[in-house]
């Protein structure tokens, strides 16, 4: 499970700004990347990581030592909202979800059918539902941390999560009763 504890202030209280920044980047860049990829696909994720950490460098003293990851994810969320057209971001994420679904179809491993069903169900949910669901399940945030990322109270987040979870369950049920997935060949990707 991804619910690892975030490093506390004693781990990152390095005096040199460059060392602090490097420690922050090394610890969290993959998490920020994962969040950005789950919100906008890989095509935009790299740039979102860069922009997020450029903001982090400029505001190094503002980052709360005990909530660094939520702070970074909130910055990434704002960057996604402010710097990219909603339609472009959604299109990129839809393409990514199709890729993940195709990969799950091609994967003959355990629970492959369930994974396909849940990814297809997720793809059909609203953007807001996708976000609250993945913050807790894919990115390992507690409800309080996730609430901080989306900018609402913990209680409000619980309500949103509960409703999103119900809609996900319904969507999974619908997906399961539809046609069974066909195996597809995933292109290996030609070396450029």
């Amino acid at each position: 499970m991804l619910c690892e504890r975030m490093p506390r202030s004693k781990d990152i209280s390095l005096p040199n700004p460059h060392e602090r920044f490097t420690a922050l980047y090394t610890t969290y860049q993959a998490r920020v990347y994962g969040y950005a990829a789950s919100r906008a696909g890989h095509q935009l994720a790299e740039e979102v990581v860069s922009e997020t950490f450029l903001v982090a460098w400029r505001r190094l003293d503002d980052i709360p030592a005990d909530a660094q990851l939520p702070w970074l994810l909130r910055v990434a969320r704002n960057i996604l909202r402010d710097n990219y057209r909603q339609a472009a971001r959604r299109e990129s994420l839809e393409a990514e979800l199709r890729t993940w679904t195709e990969q799950a179809i091609a994967d003959a491993g355990e629970h492959a059918v369930e994974r396909v069903a849940v990814l297809r169900a997720l793809a059909g949910l609203s953007d807001a539902d996708k976000e609250v669901l993945t913050l807790t399940t894919w990115h390992g945030l507690s409800a309080a941390e996730a609430a901080e990322v989306v900018g609402c109270s913990k209680a409000a987040f619980f309500v949103r999560l509960h409703r999103a979870r119900r809609r996900l369950q319904s969507a999974i049920d619908v997906t399961r009763t539809s046609a069974s997935p066909k195996p597809v060949t995933v292109p290996g990707g030609e070396l450029r």
């Binding site: 499970m1 920044f21 490097t22 980047y25 090394t26 860049q29 993959a30 920020v32 990347y33 994962g34 990829a37 789950s38 890989h42 994720a45 790299e46 990581v49 860069s50 993940w100 990969q103 799950a104 629970h111 369930e114 994974r115 069903a117 849940v118 990814l119 997720l122 669901l133 993945t134 807790t136 399940t137 894919w138 979870r165 996900l168 369950q169 999974i172």
Partner: peptide, 21 residues
Amino acid sequence: AMDLLAMARPAALDRGSRLSA
């Protein structure tokens, strides 16, 4: 549903940025 979703987490999310610190 949440367990299924956690199970379906794409491994590609762990790829991380290609940029170094």
